[in-house]
């Protein structure tokens, strides 16, 4: 599904990612953990194609194509989805309007008929039940006046509607209370599928109690310094991130399966 090879990337002149190697197969869930500032969001942004991050070397192959050659919207239409760490507000644009426009843009690209308003509403209302969201949120402006938890749920709702092949969830757990976390985790779990891969970016191990990853990677200073199974997350939980400092110097850890 996804093969990242020796990826180096900078923001401005500042190198942030310094040789990432990661392979994610179809149906797998990978967790990427790491301290603040280690480059987790930068990696997520590179995958989604954000312009302010410059890839200086390395390659990313996604479903057999060169991901880096695609525009942001082309990646989205090819099934790459990013749930944002800080979902943005768009005043005056109805949530339902954005969702419908996005879904139809993607369907059109795939040669599927566009959904009309009735069909779309039926679909989205169904998905909203899953996220335990109130229908009134459909008619509010995108994320405007949403609480932190509502924003994150809204992101997962978009994922549920768009049904991506590769979902990257950037700190979807941060700022959630335990009830909201359970709802979000439940939504994400229900979207697990043999044809869908996920990358869970998180600072805390807490999320991984609810969404069981197949692999856990530790990112520090722009490199993956350790990879392992779910037990690695528990190790981190016990020891904190301080210990990785000792292991970061130069060692390349290739990971995934």
């Amino acid at each position: 599904m996804l093969i990242i090879k020796d990826l180096h990337a900078s923001v401005g002149d500042k190198p942030i990612l310094k040789g990432i190697n990661l392979t994610v197969n179809a149906g797998e869930v990978h967790a990427i953990m790491g301290p603040n500032g280690s480059g987790k969001s930068t990696l997520s942004n590179v995958l989604a194609g954000r312009e302010n991050v410059t890839v200086t070397s390395g390659s990313i192959e996604y479903l057999g194509q060169d991901l880096l050659a695609l525009e942001v919207e082309e990646r989205a239409r090819a099934g790459v989805f990013l749930a944002f760490q800080y979902p943005v507000e768009i005043p005056g644009v109805g949530n339902v309007y954005l969702l419908k426009a996005a879904l139809n843009a993607q369907r059109k690209h795939r040669g599927l008929p566009e959904l009309d308003a009735m069909e779309f509403l039926a679909l989205v209302k169904d998905k909203m039940k899953l996220m335990e969201m109130n229908e009134s949120m459909l008619y509010r402006a995108v994320n405007e006046g949403f609480s932190g938890g509502e924003k994150k749920r809204n992101e997962i709702l978009q994922m549920a509607v768009l049904e991506p092949r590769l979902a990257i969830l950037d700190e979807t757990d941060s700022g959630l209370d335990i009830d909201a976390l359970k709802i979000v985790a439940n939504g994400v779990n229900s979207l697990r599928h043999p044809e869908r891969s996920m990358i869970l970016v998180t600072h805390y191990q807490r999320l991984l109690d609810y969404i069981k990853p197949d692999y856990v990677h530790v990112l520090a200073a722009g490199r993956i310094v350790r990879s392992g199974g779910p037990e690695l997350a528990h190790e981190l939980e016990k020891q904190g991130y301080a210990w990785i400092g000792n292991e970061t110097s130069g060692q390349e850890v290739s990971s995934g399966s």
Partner: peptide, 30 residues
Amino acid sequence: IGEDQLFFCRQRGLTMEDAVSMIVNGFCKE
């Protein structure tokens, strides 16, 4: 008009033109 708003819309599959037009129309809604 925020780079982050545009990036968000495009990440959901809209073209740049559609994203700009959607954001501006939202701004003018009233």
